Computed example of a mutant assay.
Amino acid sequence: MSDRPDLAAGQEALVAALTAGAPVPAGFDARLVGVARAALLRKRAGVVARAWPMLAAGYGPGWTTAFAEWADGRPTTGALRDGWDFARDRGVRGAAAEEELARREAAWRYDGVHEPRPRRIPTVRRTPGMVFVQVGGRTFSRRR
């Protein structure tokens, strides 16, 4: 029974090292933890790419690397929020990615801190090629 608090603390430290950039806890091989961490970042990039396909496509073959560099040391907040935060921090590439972000921002309120929530008031978001209007919970688009 007395080992359980130490075990829990060790597990917590390992999870923090794998997902949030914390130092590798004593007793673990730093190289192997680094390999596992890199694999988790690649997996996370794939999950975000499924939630934000145009954002990922805009970065092309460099998506995984760009996202992993950005995400390294940041705990995940979920694919939707991770992609949104990445897009706001690093920017989007290409018209399709701009439209994907504008559509989401027309339909949802997200302040970078709290969970995204559906917008209740009418909203307009513009990109060079599209206009998105959210009214009554539905988002409409029109080419410019």
Rank of each mutant, 00 (worst) to 15 (best):
V24H: 05
P25K: 05
P25C: 02
A26M: 06
A26H: 08
G27Y: 01
F28V: 08
F28P: 09
D29I: 04
A30F: 08
A30Y: 04
R31F: 13
L32F: 14
V33T: 04
V33F: 06
V35E: 10
V35I: 15
R37A: 01
A38Q: 12
A39C: 08
A39Y: 11
A39K: 13
R42C: 06
K43V: 13
R44C: 08
V47M: 11
V48P: 03
V48R: 03
V48D: 09
A49W: 08
R50L: 12
R50Y: 09
R50I: 07
R50H: 13
A51P: 13
W52G: 02
P53G: 10
P53W: 13
P53R: 11
M54L: 14
L55R: 08
L55D: 01
A56M: 00
A57Q: 06
G58H: 09
G58M: 07
G58D: 05
P61K: 10
P61R: 10
P61V: 09
P61D: 09
G62Y: 10
W63H: 02
T64H: 03
T64L: 01
A66S: 11
F67I: 02
A68I: 06
W70I: 00
A71Q: 11
D72E: 12
R74N: 00
P75G: 15
P75D: 14
T76H: 11
T77L: 15
G78I: 01
A79P: 13
A79Q: 03
L80A: 14
D82N: 07
G83W: 02
W84P: 01
D85F: 08
D85V: 07
R88S: 11
R88F: 12
G91W: 11
G91D: 05
G91L: 06
V92M: 05
V92N: 04
R93A: 04
G94S: 10
A95E: 13
E99M: 11
E99K: 13
E100Q: 05
E100V: 07
L101R: 01
L101V: 10
L101K: 06
R104P: 11
A106D: 07
A107M: 03
A107G: 11
W108K: 11
W108I: 12
W108P: 08
W108E: 13
R109T: 13
R109Q: 12
R109H: 15
Y110N: 09
D111C: 10
V113W: 13
R117T: 14
R117C: 05
P118L: 02
P118Q: 05
P118I: 04
R119T: 07
R120E: 15
R120S: 14
R120G: 14
I121F: 13
I121R: 15
P122F: 00
V124W: 03
R125P: 10
P128T: 07
P128M: 02
G129A: 15
G129M: 14
M130N: 14
M130R: 15
V131E: 01
F132T: 00
V133Q: 00
V133Y: 09
